[in-house]
Amino acid sequence: MDVSNLQVIKASGEKVQFSIDRVAESLKRSGANNKLINSTLESLKKELYDGITTKEIYTRAFSLLKKGNNTSASKYKLKTAIYELGPTGFPFEKFIAALLNHSGYKTETGKIYQGKCVTHEIDVEAKSDTKLILIECKFHNAGKNSDVKIPLYIDSRIRDIKNFRKNNNHKLELEEAWVVTNTRFTADAIQYGKCSNLKLLSWDYPKGQGLKDRIDRLGLYPITVSTLLSEREKNFLLSRDIVLCQDLINDKFYLDQLEVHNPRKKRILKEMEELCKN
């Protein structure tokens, strides 16, 4: 089937030109070998039609990958796995804190900071011996991006905190403020972030340094990518601050608390180890 002229519908409702190359690239990022990528693409082409949603394409590609390689399927579902950290957004904050922990920072979530005018609850505080970073996390469902109002609002809060701190003695200087989202920023939001020295981090921004790139490069996948754990088991683990696959490897006794039998336990831990290899 010639798929070059197909229109697909994104989660936002926008119609865009279908790109087989983008699908191939996402399959490649999952670590699938060329044989599995080619067979998945050939099977997928037979089921495409004009007006198909990107969600349908993802669901079918995921199903095909899962038959061929569980670990690749887990990596392929990364974006969906981050959505599964919702809907409250709090597990997403814990996930961002966990990423920074593995980069050498000490983190706390829900920290209260005094501003010149009012107090502020900050989603994630990250500290090193010489550096303080304050991070606000904006969790959205599929199809909703973070517009300029978000960095505008957060910038005003950071300024209030800085105005208070400059008149008081603090060991650590507030060097950076971040805004992190699981979706994308609009062009205006990115422009404001650059102008105001706010560091923006989204699914694919900055280019080559977005969430998906960092997670793939470091192998720091959220527990929700697992194709072997049930939803109940994932929620149990998240409630006990097991946010990363690496956390479960370190605290595997939680699988005993879940009464996971040994053969399945071995398969789950093998999946976790394969995901963390990066």
Rank of each mutant, 00 (worst) to 15 (best):
I249R: 07
I242A: 03
V243P: 00
Q246P: 00
E259V: 07
D241V: 01
L258H: 09
P263A: 07
I249F: 14
V260P: 02
R267H: 11
S239H: 11
V260S: 02
E259Y: 12
D241R: 09
N250R: 12
Y254F: 15
V260N: 03
D256C: 09
K266R: 11
L255H: 02
R240M: 00
S239I: 14
D251I: 00
I249A: 07
V243E: 00
D241C: 09
L248Q: 03
P263K: 04
S239C: 06
Q246L: 15
E259P: 04
K252E: 09
K265D: 09
R240F: 01
R267E: 13
Q246E: 07
L258V: 07
D241F: 07
D251M: 08
I242M: 02
I268E: 03
R240N: 14
K265Q: 07
L244N: 02
E259K: 14
V260T: 04
L244H: 04
N250T: 06
H261I: 11
I268N: 00
L255G: 01
K265V: 08
C245K: 05
K252T: 01
D256N: 15
D251V: 04
D241I: 07
K266S: 09
V243W: 01
L244V: 03
D251N: 14
Y254G: 03
I268P: 01
L258R: 08
L258A: 03
K265T: 08
V260A: 02
R267Q: 12
L258Q: 03
E259C: 08
S239R: 15
N250P: 05
P263V: 10
Y254S: 05
K266Y: 12
D241K: 11
H261P: 03
V243N: 02
L248S: 08
L248D: 01
R240A: 00
D256W: 14
I249V: 13
D251S: 09
N262S: 10
D256A: 07
D251Q: 10
D256H: 15
K265N: 06
K266T: 14
S239A: 15
V260I: 15
D247A: 05
F253I: 10
R240E: 07
L255M: 05
C245H: 06
R264S: 08
N250F: 09
I242H: 02
V260L: 06
H261T: 10
R267A: 06
Q257G: 07
D251A: 08
D256T: 14
S239Y: 00
Q257S: 10
N250W: 10
Q246K: 15
N250L: 15
Q246I: 15
Y254T: 08
I268D: 02
I242V: 12
K252Y: 05
L244W: 05
